[in-house]
């Protein structure tokens, strides 16, 4: 800071927090990296909009459809429903929605029968 001078300890903490971060790798996504951790001293950085946050909108592409996504929701639905939560947020079979896909014999064909679930 050049125009504000921190005087007490709290101000010094504010200033430190605002310092431009020296390490360009800081803020890198570590969760998907292969091999040994490249930033051993830092806590992992979670990208905004990942499924740890409720962020609808990831399930559609820029045209509003699903075809352009790397993993269209209708294809990996079962994976997300049963074993894994990534990348779309779908109800989990284990605890909350055991019968959610009961009417969906083949996802490519029957996915429209799957109804919305509200927590």
């Amino acid at each position: 800071m050049k125009h504000l001078k921190s005087v007490n300890r709290k101000a010094a903490m504010v200033e430190q927090d605002l310092e431009p971060k020296g390490n360009p790798q800081e803020g890198d996504v570590v969760a998907l990296q292969q091999g040994p951790p490249q930033q051993p001293q830092q806590s992992p950085h979670f990208p905004l909009g990942c499924s740890l946050q409720f962020d609808p909108g990831w399930e559609v592409d820029s045209s509003g459809g699903t075809a352009g996504l790397c993993q269209p929701v209708e294809r990996d639905l079962f994976d997300c429903h049963t074993g894994c939560y990534w990348p779309a947020q779908v109800p989990d079979q284990l605890n909350h929605a055991p019968d959610w896909t009961g009417k969906c014999a083949a996802a490519q064909k029957d996915w429209r029968k799957i109804d919305l679930i509200f927590p």
Binding site: H3, L4, K5, S6, V7, N8, K10, A11, M13, V14
Partner: peptide
Amino acid sequence: RFVYLVPSAAVFALDDTA
């Protein structure tokens, strides 16, 4: 000139521009 910020309780001195 100084400011006592609320609620952080940080004290900063201001220069002429600030």
